[in-house]
Design a protein around this nucleic acid. Structure first.
Lengths: 264, 264
DNA sequence: TAGATTGTTAATCGATTAACAATC
DNA sequence: TAGATTGTTAATCGATTAACAATC
């Protein structure tokens, strides 16, 4: 992730653990809901329940931000909303571009959770000339040729990639060259970026595979049941190839670099 | 083979660390790509690079599965593909249902990465009667009324929720009651489920917020620069409310329980 | 004051990493 | 054999958790 660590004594707000940063948005969401219900204060116990974590963890997390609570009372909802928003950098405007306007790109463009948190969709970009000018979520799709000028003219530092896997690295390179330093990648591929550029990835297939792993264990191990070890045990002469069981060959199929969700 | 491990029992495949499970899909993807290029063997160094991790971690991860490599040579690609697939439970068929066919639900339905990994979309379900019967990704959308029968008739154990946040918990409850034990949640809300049910969540807004946090730090701290502490420092009399700065009020706006991406 | 709840400590747990003996 | 690379160890690092003194 190459986050500008070390140096600078700026102290507080400095060493916030990554795990804590990842939970701040959860707290913020729960707090925003309380704020809308005009709830003035909340205890660590209540807020933790609403956010889906335990209270010790929540208090520990908040301790990295400062002492914003009041012993015996709890936390002031509005004040915490502000502090967390500020810590996350949401009190400023973040123009973002979405590249690859297929089903997923369109879904992202229509996502209401962006605008309300300081994110503004500056442009939707797609490589398909047939898409150019077509309105999606109220914005006309721009052609990839304009990528660099769009980034520069809008001061975009965050880019979202929703293209097929095959186009992702190239799009990434262009985004970075044009000045983008944070990328949210939906394409099922590992992107290589220079130091100083952050990449976060969202992969639908991976999430399902993790669920399948646990699901398999829950099944009581009765169906296919834990195959103790492949029938083949001794390794052949030359190659170490312990022979891939039939099922392995069947696995190959398509995919591998199948589009994240849609053509761009 | 002959994993000189401890005793005998099924033991192995038992205590695989969660962090390792989460990386197996990454290795599998890299291996599948190698397999398609007919690469016979790969070293931990090469595979680690392709998967975006370091080789020590990869070898440690694989050690939990067994001893599938050959010293001095590396790993047999086909064999590893099979072993990891089996470990993840991908050698069996997993029927899934997607509930909430908005932009996101449609994007998921069209996602090519499912079928190739053992996941089969058994049905697309939406609450809007106007959607019923409409073909999406080649499947007719079914009405929510049929949810229970669809789950039971197809032996579905994995459900994907892509509804607005407001409908998520109710959909979740019905899925669970009908027999689903693993849920992939795209709605920006915390779902409560009984023990034994796994929930994984994907939240676009959260990922962007985490990027914004790091982006803010990269900005060199010159723009708004690290506000050392709120202008208000002493806590008022009665309520602890240290007064929410103007920006906080502005935060409120809409959202809070805005649809994940689309109405269902 | 008495009750409530924070902020912090310290123990524990899990994950990462470098290094290297084992061994193909 | 000599070179290459795994599988494992042990040290380190970071995250979680329970408990409780501080204090509103």
């Amino acid at each position: 992730m190459a986050t500008g660590r070390t140096h600078r004594p700026a102290t507080r707000s400095r060493g916030i653990p990554e795990a804590t940063v990842a939970r701040l948005p959860l707290y913020l969401r729960a707090l925003t809901a309380l704020s809308e219900r005009s709830v003035p204060t909340v205890s660590s116990e209540e807020l933790a329940t609403a956010a889906g974590v335990n209270s010790a963890k929540l208090r520990k997390d908040f301790s990295y931000l400062g002492s914003y609570g009041t012993r015996g009372v709890g936390y002031d909802v509005e004040y915490l909303v502000y502090q967390i928003s500020r810590e996350l950098g949401l009190t400023q405007d973040w123009p973002v571009v979405i590249v690859g306007i297929g089903n997923l790109g369109a879904a992202l463009a229509n996502y209401g959770g962006f605008a309300s948190r300081g994110f503004r969709v500056a442009a939707l970009i797609d490589a398909d000339p047939a898409m150019t000018g077509k309105p999606v979520a109220g914005l006309p799709v721009r052609h990839t040729d304009e990528l660099e000028s769009i980034i520069r003219d809008n001061g975009v530092s965050i880019g979202v990639i929703a293209t097929p896997a095959g186009a992702a690295q190239q799009v990434c390179d262009r985004l970075v060259a044009a000045g983008v330093t944070s990328i949210l990648n939906f394409a099922p591929t590992v992107l290589s970026v220079p130091d100083g550029v952050d990449v976060r990835k969202v992969d639908l297939s991976i999430e399902l595979q993790i669920l399948a792993f646990h699901e398999q264990r829950k099944a009581g191990e009765e169906p296919g049941s834990v195959p103790p070890a492949p029938a083949v045990s001794a390794a052949p002469a030359t190659a170490p190839s312990p022979v891939a069981p039939a099922a392995a060959a069947g696995r190959k199929g398509p995919d591998g670099d199948v589009p994240a969700v849609m053509p761009a």
